[in-house]
């Protein structure tokens, strides 16, 4: 899906990063004025383990700068071309959230422009801070609907000496692994640490030459279920043979064990819609990430606390200028 060229300088505003998450939450309305955030590292003090970057900075650049000092920020977007602003706005965490926490736990301070044109700072630059309300967490996952991010201060961590994926039957016994994945055929576990620990924990498992890949295809989504339901939900995505004659196309999936996220991909929109109904049957929902149809926008369930969320939206964007058409408020794209 593409956004028509900006011809009429409409009131609508759509922040743009690298467009790697562009279809998440539905495209902004046609004619929205696209705005871009500053690019580059603004401050980096390795001994504080904090970095401040312009929101337009790509994850690739961020990771390269941190790696030079033996540090990392485990935002782990699907594409390294994604910008920090896009990652925060979408709030979609990578598989290492199992050990390193979700995107929202890496953000210390945000500076964004509200819908009524005020530059607002929330949070603070230190690794610990409870001064005032937690605007950084409110911003993460808000899909650009409460403000246009200018810059963010992120918490960094030491980069592990060794990082190795393994596969085997007993990936559950590893102590707090960085990630655990299951695609229906095999389980994979990412072990991080010093060599001796990774080797000891990996004993009895087989090292993988390359990390597992998430399924890809023209139609993609991300299912969320309670971690206790993830195996049952994922298994239900696999068609049984009796269904295969009449059921729509195959759903390819990879589940994050211990987290509750299942990445799904399909070659046709109907299969994605089926994945969503499976998610519902297991008490969860599916966020469309790419492809699908307009009917697949939203979470496919009533938005919880919608009235309260509407008041939050109005508090930051009273005229409704920002990313009209995108989630989270519209349950269905209109």
């Amino acid at each position: 899906m593409t956004t028509p060229p900006d011809t009429n300088r409409a009131l609508d505003i759509a922040p743009v990063g690298a467009r790697t998450h562009w279809e998440v939450g539905g495209p902004p309305v046609a004619g929205a004025t696209e705005v871009r955030a500053p690019v580059g590292v603004l401050a980096y003090e390795p001994a504080d383990m904090t970095i401040t970057v312009g929101a337009g900075t790509t994850f690739d650049e961020l990771d390269r700068v941190l790696a030079e000092q033996g540090q990392q920020c485990a935002l782990d977007p699907r594409s390294r071309a994604a910008t920090v602003g896009g990652i925060l706005a979408c709030g979609l965490s990578g598989p290492r959230r199992l050990r390193h926490g979700p995107v929202r736990d890496h953000v210390l301070e945000v500076r964004f422009e509200t819908g009524d044109g005020r530059l607002v700072k929330g949070g603070g630059p230190t690794v610990k801070n409870v001064t005032g309300y937690d605007l950084p967490r409110l911003f993460v996952g808000s899909l650009g609907t409460i403000g246009v991010l200018h810059q963010a201060t992120l918490r960094c961590r030491p980069r592990p000496v060794r990082s190795q994926w393994f596969t085997g039957v007993d990936t559950a016994r590893a102590f707090r692994p960085a990630a655990r994945l299951w695609d229906g055929r095999r389980e994979a576990v990412l072990l991080e640490g010093v060599d001796v620990d990774v080797e000891a924990e990996g004993r009895g498992l087989a090292a993988l030459a390359a990390p597992p890949r998430f399924p890809d295809g023209p139609h993609r989504g991300r299912i969320s279920v309670a971690p206790g339901a993830v195996r049952a939900c994922a298994a239900a995505l696999t068609r049984t043979p009796s269904e295969s004659a009449s059921a729509p196309g195959e759903v390819r999936w990879c589940a994050e064990l211990g987290v509750g996220t299942i990445h799904v991909a399909a070659d046709d929109a109907a299969a994605l819609a089926r994945a969503r109904s499976v998610a519902h049957a297991h008490g969860g929902w599916m966020l469309r990430e790419a492809g699908g149809s307009a009917a697949d926008d939203g979470y496919g369930c009533a938005l919880p606390n919608a009235a309260l969320m509407r008041r939050v939206k109005d508090a930051f964007d009273p005229a409704g200028k920002l990313n009209r058409g995108r989630l989270p408020l519209g349950a269905v794209h209109a």
């Binding site: 709030g91 979609l92 959230r97 993460v140 969320s224 971690p227 309260l308 969320m309 939206k313």
Partner: peptide, 14 residues
């Protein structure tokens, strides 16, 4: 929610 990333704004975080 127990499932990751409840739909909509992170009101829990607020």
């Amino acid at each position: 929610s127990l499932a990751p990333d409840a739909p909509g704004y992170d009101l829990r975080g607020c």
